[in-house]
Design a protein around this nucleic acid. Sequence first.
DNA 1: ACATTAATTATGT
DNA 2: ACATAATTAATGT
Length: 237
Amino acid sequence: MTDTLRKTLPRLDESLLAHLPPFSRLGRADIRAILDQASVKRYDSGTAIFDEGAPAERFFMLLDGYVRVVRITPTGEQVTALHIPAGQLLGIARALGRETYPATAISATESLALSWPMTLWDRYAAQYDGFATETYKTVGQRLGEMNTRLVELATQQVEQRVANALLRLINQTGRKVEGGIEIDFPITRQDLSELTATTLHTVSRLLSAWEKQGLVESRRKHITVCDPHALMVLAQG
DNA sequence: ACATTAATTATGT
DNA sequence: ACATAATTAATGT
C-alpha cells in the first residue's frame, strides 16, 4: 500500500549529497531527511540567485554549474569576489553570523541548486556531526583565497595579477581539453578585469600577447591555458 | 606602468 | 539588424 503515497515528483536521490563535504559524514537516513526539506531550482545563465543586502532567508547547495559572487561598489561597478563551482555551499550568511547576504550570487552558467530555509541551518549544524566543521573548512578556504587576492592587489603588477587569476581559475574550474586546460564557464575580459582590478583593455592586450607566445588560446567568452608552467613563471614577477 | 577614450571589427542572437 | 565582445591605436597621468 505504500506506493499509493507516491504523489510527488521524482524524489531526489541521496547520492546527490552523499559525497559532498558537508554531508559526507552523514548516514543515509540523515541525508534523506535533509533532502526532503530541500527545494530544487534551475537558474538560467546570468540570473541572480540572491542579492547583496537582502535578508538571508535560504542557503544553497550548488549541484551543477558555476556561480560568481559579486559585490557592487559604492560607485556602482561590479567586482567579482570569487567563483563557486558545483558541489559547494552558497549563501551561508548564517555561518558568518549575518542576517543578510554579504554579496550577490549570479549564475555564470545554467545552474542547478538545492536550497533550504535558513532556520534549518542552526539545526543542521547542531545535530549533524561534521556539518559545521566541514562548512567552516570551505569558509576558511574562501577567506584565504580572498586574502591572497588582496595581497596580490596591493603588491603585484597587473600582468602577474591576471596570470594568478587565470591559474586559480583553471585550478578550481579547469577542464582538461586538447592542448591545455580550459575554464569551464563563459568568462569575458570584463570579468577577468573585475577579478584583477584592471581594465578589460589591459586584459585584452595581455591575452593577445600571451596567445602569440602560445601561452593561452581564447575564443569569445572562452579561455584555455596551454602552458600553465610558463604562466606560473610570469605570475611570480 | 598603467588608465582612459574612442574608433573599428568580430561574433552571437 | 542588433547588441555584446574583443582588438587596436592614441592620448593621458
